[in-house]
Lab assay of single mutants.
Amino acid sequence: GKELVLALYDYQEKSPREVTMKKGDILTLLNSTNKDWWKVEVNDRQGFVPAAYVKKL
């Protein structure tokens, strides 16, 4: 099944490779191999968020 993460904080994208999320959002985790930036999918968009801003559910 898909792995989900919870947004712990708001995050505003700073580049086209990133995505914006709001605290409390549930996101689909696509890739967590990089310890600093995790790739997630939110609202049919894929991009990176800081790993410290999310936690695995």
Rank of each mutant, 00 (worst) to 15 (best):
M21N: 01
Y9M: 12
Y53K: 08
N31R: 07
Q12H: 13
V5M: 05
R17M: 13
V19F: 11
N43V: 13
W38H: 02
W37V: 03
D25V: 05
F48A: 03
L8V: 08
V5P: 00
K39L: 15
Y53I: 09
D44S: 12
E3F: 10
K39G: 06
S32R: 08
G47F: 08
F48L: 09
R17L: 12
K56Q: 10
K14Q: 15
F48T: 03
K55H: 11
N34S: 09
S32E: 15
V40H: 00
T20E: 04
K2N: 11
S15N: 12
L30T: 05
E41S: 10
E41I: 09
G1D: 12
N31E: 15
K14R: 14
K55E: 14
R17P: 06
K23H: 06
L30A: 03
P50G: 02
E41P: 00
Q46C: 11
L30W: 05
N43S: 10
V42G: 15
E18I: 04
G24S: 03
G47E: 02
L57H: 06
Q46S: 12
T33M: 11
A51S: 14
K39T: 08
K39W: 15
Y11Q: 00
L27Y: 09
T20V: 03
L6H: 04
N43E: 12
I26F: 06
N31C: 13
V5G: 14
E3V: 14
M21I: 14
E3Q: 13
G1C: 15
F48M: 08
Y9F: 14
M21P: 00
V19C: 09
Q12Y: 14
A7R: 01
G1I: 13
V40N: 00
D36R: 12
D36N: 13
R45I: 08
W37Q: 03
Q12M: 13
K35C: 10
N34G: 09
G47Y: 05
L8I: 09
K56P: 10
K14Y: 05
K55Y: 10
G24M: 03
V49P: 01
G47P: 00
L30Q: 04
D25C: 06
Q46M: 09
V5D: 01
L30C: 07
A7S: 06
P16Q: 10
T20P: 07
R45F: 05
A51L: 02
Y11A: 01
W37T: 02
D10W: 04
K55M: 13
D36Q: 11
V5I: 08
L4S: 07
E41M: 11
S32Q: 10
M21F: 10
L29G: 01
S15G: 12
S32L: 05
T33F: 10
K35S: 13
D25L: 05
V5Y: 09
D44L: 10
D44F: 10
V19L: 14
K35D: 10
D36V: 13
W38P: 01
V49Q: 00
D36I: 14
K23M: 08
T28G: 08
K14H: 09
A7K: 01
K22R: 13
S15A: 09
L4W: 14
